[in-house]
Design a binder for these strands. Structure first.
Lengths: 143, 143
DNA sequence: TAAATTTGCTTGCTATTTGCAAGTAAACAA
DNA sequence: TTGTTTACTTGCAAATAGCAAGCAAATTTA
């Protein structure tokens, strides 16, 4: 795994050295907002990530402590990825990307995001709690 | 200028189609948090962006309405870049990247960010007001 | 007023990264 | 025991990034 070299000592630059990429935050989005948790799940997302890029990013995210993987309880050839606290802490970043995107994407149905925006802190706490629960249980549970 | 093709109709994906890159948000950071406003200013930032990449990203940001450029009043061979409202609306995204980066970057001096975090909304409003004032004045003013 | 400098790029070349298609391997199901 | 599911890896072509040099208009300096 290629080590991340930081280009400066700016905290924004530090974050972008990990997240400044077209794919990483989409994988984290899937983990935060959907029940997707496996390689095949992420592969099936609308953006159509290439198999080698997905494998690479999952390695990178795990090597850098954003996610962890466990063998599925039912199928031993299936891996379940879940967020660590470090990954969960990115919820506010992704929420703000969603709010901005929703404002400027003419195609977006804005009602859901508007509701979220009205209680941003509550929404973040809800997501945080749901995902924190998964940290110590091997199997992600549904809604 | 190459047009941005959106990979899905997710608002997060929409944002990342513009911002999912190691450089774009660093240029916007300079415009938001420092008094940098010219090609040469951005070039001098710690991350050492290449000249062709900087030129490309400035074009892209202007073509997509994040920034606008005006000829400097004093020097006619100098361009002054400033944020549009669309760009200013990215302040919350960048703030969250800074908060996350500050939490996980062991080298970061966290005091400034801790203070910011205590009054996030106030800080955003302050920045917003300062930058909004620049939209209708050709010359960015100092602190 | 001529030469040097500042400013904002562009160009050419090489190296790295991405993206697509195909292949592999372990676990599992029929 | 054969086919399928799952999670990758590999090979190759295309796109992007990065480095060094070059260029041109405006401005300053001699």
């Amino acid at each position: 795994m290629k080590e991340i070299l930081h280009r400066s000592d700016c905290p924004i630059g530090y974050s972008l050295d990990y997240l400044g990429d077209k794919w990483v935050l989409l994988i984290l989005r899937d983990l935060i907002f959907t029940n997707k948790s496996s390689y095949g799940d992420f592969l099936a997302s609308d953006e159509k990530i290439a198999t080698n890029i997905l494998a690479d990013r999952l390695k990178l995210l795990e090597a850098n402590g954003f996610i962890k993987s466990t063998v599925s309880a039912e199928k031993k050839n299936k891996f379940i990825y879940s967020l660590t606290e470090k990954g969960i802490d990115l919820i506010p970043v992704i929420i703000e990307l969603m709010i901005w995107g929703s404002k400027y994407d003419s195609h977006d149905v804005k009602d859901v995001v508007k509701k979220l925006e009205k209680d941003k802190e509550g929404t973040i706490k809800q997501l945080r709690d749901k995902l924190s629960a998964r940290i110590n249980s091997d199997v992600p549970s549904g809604e």
